[in-house]
Design a protein around this nucleic acid. Sequence first.
DNA 1: TTGTATGCGTTATCAG
DNA 2: CTGATAACGCATACAA
Lengths: 351, 351
Amino acid sequence: MKKSSDTRGVAKAMRARHDAPVKLEEVARAAGVSPSTVSRILNGTATVSEDKKKAVDDAIAKLGFVPNPIARGLAGGRTLSVGVITQAIDSPFYGVALRGIEDELDPAGYCPLFVSGHWDPKTEARCIDVLRSRRVDGIIVLTGRLADQALKVCAKRTPVVVTGRSLRAPGLFSLNFDNFEGGRLATQHLLELGHRHIAFIAGDPDHPDATERLRGYRSALEGAGIKFDASLVVPGTYQEISGLMAVDTLLKNRQRFTAIFAANDQMALGATLGLQRRSLRVPEDVSIVGFDDLPTSLYAIPPLSTVHQPAYEMGRLAAAAMLELLSGTAPTVGPPLPRLVVRESVRRLNS
Amino acid sequence: MKKSSDTRGVAKAMRARHDAPVKLEEVARAAGVSPSTVSRILNGTATVSEDKKKAVDDAIAKLGFVPNPIARGLAGGRTLSVGVITQAIDSPFYGVALRGIEDELDPAGYCPLFVSGHWDPKTEARCIDVLRSRRVDGIIVLTGRLADQALKVCAKRTPVVVTGRSLRAPGLFSLNFDNFEGGRLATQHLLELGHRHIAFIAGDPDHPDATERLRGYRSALEGAGIKFDASLVVPGTYQEISGLMAVDTLLKNRQRFTAIFAANDQMALGATLGLQRRSLRVPEDVSIVGFDDLPTSLYAIPPLSTVHQPAYEMGRLAAAAMLELLSGTAPTVGPPLPRLVVRESVRRLNS
DNA sequence: TTGTATGCGTTATCAG
DNA sequence: CTGATAACGCATACAA
């Protein structure tokens, strides 16, 4: 181990090459106090006399001391980081939620650790293991397909906040979104514009979200005295392409419809494209309403009417709830409400 | 400290409530060897006799032992995590790159730590501090506005991979994308379709990307013997809205143009919407080419012709380079090449 | 090849 | 209010 055929000492060597990070002990020496006192000041663990506090603060400033979270985590059991299980780090929808989480956690000194579950229960379970092993102080789960039970078990050891479900368990807080009401709102809107034949492009039936939106659709229909017609419901996968294919299916089956409610914006956009390919215009020939209100939906052509799902706010709320959990108080935040955003993809039906 | 008006012991209490994580020492005892031997087997630091190795592996499996990265980080100086400075965690473009990074790092046992710089040099500098303090083994910077010099300094202590620049320094590897060539490609394409009056919606002039794309545009024009007309170039901000406004500006100034090259897809989409608002159709009246090839551009209406920027691959390459850096070998990966993707937003000009 | 001893930078538990 | 001292869980020179 001399001339280094060694491949692992690199990072270490680089660190050594220059000034090593200043440590708490040095601060203590510089301030003429004990390490414990410095620690106490840093964490507010106990009251310290004013003069010593000042001396320490000065020393910290002068030396540019930054506490080492790794050591802190080992010693104190807290890492000031919270794990976030999202489904795909590049999801246009969840991305906004991640930003909300980041914005809420940052001022509190916490740092999010994002991992992707890819809608796979096994992967999500592995994510939990990874986060656990990294000793995160808490875990935020954005929807996902992990069994409720698994979350409850997890919550016994690590505080958990989960969106998209309604659960109740010790150490666990859930923040659901009223997808049923959202689905109802969208359908209702089309009904009020005079539409009677409203197709529904469904989402993945494994998603509780998706089935709730479908329920909302049915409920609105029935409330208007319209019989539910299963042949107007086509399956989808939440991807654009499935919206496009859904339109093909509807048209091929010669279904009669003047409006489409898609269970998410991505499918609504796919459907719009599908219609255009058949020379059907939106909204002149067919009205379309989506769900989610993705950032890009505002600039779709035509700008998409949709059910706004406040992902950013959802992220903030989830993070806020986590901070409350972490501080020992019961979370008090409530879920955000669905809201219809009317843009240019719908029109009143002339009867 | 009895009835707990205490707010910090919660996490710890929860952890204690159930089985504590099994530690290396217990594995050693169960296998009848010393802790160091277990450690060696875990890290492949030295050769170990077959039988002991088997005993340890069995013990690990039976006890379900998972090494504690925190302790590992403290003791060994490596955390098996690499920091990633993206600009906005919800960016549709960088999101895909993050996924590439994740996919490449995961099999190597590394874990990405994402932080957002928000295109602000100061914030990015803070990000570096955060990552440093978290003892990441390396840092990947996705473009951003941090001074080159700052990156070089950072690289002296922590290996750095940066995209969107061409730098050379010890411990630093950069992976640029040929924005000039991309801009040339897009413009060239429009020229070949017979367009002579091609407007350009520019990106933020602070972005080297943006100015390079403009250069490519000019170069192609001049190559075709067309004089550069500054009044056909309108400033933009890379946001959809600025594309929309750019069209307004162009029209208000009564500029004559049959095609638009937008410095990114978001502005191209905004421009498309702007044209539609003025009853101009794409591509019948105006052809449009974008830049980036966002996942959503395929489903834009009409599907957008654009310069494909392989963000996912870029992410993978950056991560691969980082792994090489970390293992002490000089990175060998090269940058991906720009490629034009022709879809339905352009048409040949009848002259 | 294997075990022993020490240190990584903090926090927490005690005495004082 | 403050200072010693012992963990925290693992890696690694060093000795055997």
